[in-house]
């Protein structure tokens, strides 16, 4: 590894002054004597200095106001969403209760209608009544009684 390569490997640490005193001095001397390394170092330093330019970018003075406006908008949307959720739940409950009520009403109504229709249309009339212990059916028992 030649001197230039060694120096190149440490240029960024030289820029950030993160080397020991001896190495800092060594690189400093090399840069004064080697134009190729000096140009490379200047390029690197210029690129890295862009960080300082970016860091000092002015922030929009109205940024805070914009943020607060956005936050208020979020809150408003949240409230609107909550209201619509409550309204939706209320409608759902009402419709369910209404559907059950209508179902019960029709059930009772139709049941009642068929019951009265069956009674009205019924022609069945019982003419004979059979009894299990009819005396005529009990011949054996009557003979015993008669023999006595």
């Amino acid at each position: 590894m030649n001197d230039c390569t060694k120096i190149e490997n440490n240029l960024i640490f030289f820029y950030y002054k993160e080397l020991n005193k001896e190495k800092m001095e060594q690189i400093n001397v090399h840069l004064l004597n080697c134009s190729k390394c000096e140009i490379l170092y200047n390029q690197l330093a210029n690129s890295l200095s862009v960080i300082d330019i970016e860091k000092n970018t002015d922030i929009d003075l109205l940024l805070t106001n914009k943020i607060i406006e956005q936050v208020l908008l979020v809150e408003k949307n949240k409230k609107g969403k909550n209201n619509s959720v409550v309204f939706k739940k209320l409608i759902q409950t009402t419709l369910t209760v209404a559907a059950i009520s209508v179902g019960i009403f029709f059930g009772v109504f139709i049941g009642g209608f068929y019951e009265s229709a069956n009674i009205a249309n019924s022609n069945f009339e019982q003419t004979e009544v059979f009894y299990f212990n009819d005396l005529e059916q009990e011949a054996f028992l009557s003979e015993i009684i008669n023999n006595e």
């Binding site: 140009i39 390029q43 210029n46 690129s47 890295l48 200095s49 862009v50």
Partner: peptide
């Protein structure tokens, strides 16, 4: 001393 323009330095840094 500057072979690259500031805009190019900015691009180079962003890329890196």
């Amino acid at each position: 001393d500057k072979l690259l323009t500031n805009k190019e330095h900015s691009k180079a840094l962003k890329y890196a």
